[in-house]
Amino acid sequence: MEPMNQFSAVALPLPLENVDTDQLIPARFMKEPRKPNGYGAFLLHDMRFDSSGEPLDFMLNRPEAASSEVLVARRNFGAGSSREAAVYALVDHGFRCVIAPSFGDIFASNSVNNGLLPALVSEQDCERLLEAMAEQPATITIDLQNQCISLGEQTVSFDINPTWKLKLLNGWDDIDLTLARTPEIEQFRTNYKNRYPWLG
């Protein structure tokens, strides 16, 4: 995973609540292999296209969307299923950060595991950002180290779990970190088996 720190990019407003994982990637696309084409084309598919596949008037169909790296949405973004494919769809489309006042728990950890920053802002700050965007794409600056977001005149701070911040800043991978602790895990396992012998 690429380390992340400060970056400026085009942000898209998505002023909706409860954008769940079934909307982020409808289930029927999940049998596709991720390689070689990625899942970007499936992102929010049924909001982007009508049933005959014609594009609808939707933010993600605008020309600016092709280069955008940030989404600003309302509460409970990524609620629902644990499908990591929802994150793959965002990442494969080019997104590096989603800003919202709350995230589905599993979605948020899936995001971090794929280098996508789930930036948690207050409801008020989220509305300020959306207002400043006035339903248009806008250039935004994300500073992970200092946990702040700037858009025009507005600067707001965001929250992030400290472990997740460290992982994103360094591009760390959990499996490597954990394997370094193998002796500790084995020691735990021995004690555990003694305490709960019926599980051994």
Binding site: S82, E84, V87, F107, S109, N110, I175, T178
Partner: peptide
């Protein structure tokens, strides 16, 4: 859990 976490559980 998500797929990356499943991989972590399988591995560790």
């Amino acid at each position: 859990i998500g797929a990356s976490e499943v991989a972590h559980v399988l591995a560790t």
